[in-house]
């Protein structure tokens, strides 16, 4: 019993210290721009330090709990054929990313707002509104790849400093779900709430969005889809920016995002690169009742 209490106390302390870091990070994100934008390792910098199995488990547990909040806010869109199609393209595109240890899962959610969400651990959501504005499969693959990149680049994981291990070989988060103390569970829930706030209200850092756009554009090229698909999609929805009522503040404007994608395309000599758009199959599978 003493041992169990000791474990709970250790977990509680560890989770509280993680939460303190997270709160500090979130607080700092309200400071003027740039200072907060570039302190992390970015695309094109050194490879990541390796995550342990426990880190990945913690990420999945955290992401799963965040996914439950996304599906608490937006209902599953009931369309088996569409969901199967999105999962096939999603799971296909995920294999062109650099995190084979993650099983990516996809769902279409029933809202007309134009948006998509990624929770750590590979839980990805695309709104019906976003699907309705896509013209072809390359655009779907582009949006999916942008969300996959938030997971592979670990944007939320880094923002909230989610780890399964520190000094101890036992994982904080993973143990927590196996039966941590009540206090530790409350702190865990509060951290997931903070992640939900990032997704629904505050937005990720500008640079995170630019990085995901960059990775998505490059991944399209590797897979064999039209690498300009993300740019085409962003241009299209930029006209409906007000309608999306989505993220403001730290979220970059569509104009900035399109300029960033243009730079990526030019850097990689992909501007005139003609590859597959796959319109017919998209139209067969993406129909709204």
């Amino acid at each position: 019993m003493k041992n169990i209490r000791g474990l709970e106390n250790r977990l509680g302390t560890r989770v509280l210290s993680m939460a303190a870091v997270a709160l500090f990070t979130i607080h700092c994100s309200s400071l003027p721009a740039f200072a907060e934008d570039d302190f992390r390792k970015r695309v094109n910098q050194e490879p990541e330090s390796f995550a342990t199995d426990d880190d990945v488990k913690a990420e999945i547990v955290f992401g799963r709990t965040l996914a439950a909040r996304i599906l608490g806010k937006y209902a599953f869109y009931e369309n088996g054929k569409l969901n199967e199609y999105v999962n096939k393209i999603g799971k296909g595109m995920a294999q062109f990313a650099n995190r084979p240890e993650i099983e990516f899962r996809f769902a279409v959610i029933d809202t007309d707002i134009v948006n998509a969400f990624a929770a750590p651990g590979g839980y990805i959501f695309i709104t019906k509104g976003a699907m309705a504005r896509m013209a072809d499969e390359a655009e779907l693959a582009a949006v999916i790849s942008h969300e996959i990149a938030h997971v592979t680049e670990k944007h939320i994981v880094k923002e909230l400093n989610i780890k399964g291990t520190d000094a101890s070989p036992v994982s904080g988060f993973a143990q927590l779900l196996g039966g941590g103390s009540g206090a530790a569970r409350v702190v865990f829930s509060q951290m997931v709430d903070q992640a939900a706030e990032i997704l629904f209200e505050k937005g990720l850092k500008k640079q995170d969005e630019f990085d995901s756009d960059k990775v998505a554009t490059m991944t399209l090229a590797v897979a064999g889809y039209d690498p300009t698909a993300l740019k085409r999609y962003l241009k299209k929805i930029s006209g409906a920016e007000k309608e999306t009522k989505s993220l403001t503040g730290t979220h970059p404007s569509f104009k900035e995002r399109i300029e960033n994608v243009d730079a990526v395309l030019a850097e990689n000599q992909l501007t005139e690169n003609k590859q597959a758009i796959v319109k017919e199959r998209f139209n067969q599978n993406v129909r709204f009742n």
């Binding site: 709990t65 909040r69 608490g72 806010k73 599953f76 096939k88 799971k91 296909g92 294999q95 064999g224």
Partner: peptide
Amino acid sequence: KYRVNFKGVERMEAVRINDDEALNFLL
């Protein structure tokens, strides 16, 4: 602060499409 729906997550996890099937479809 937020409503949660774990049953929805379980449904999402119940989709069984293996990597090869997805990749072959995409290609």
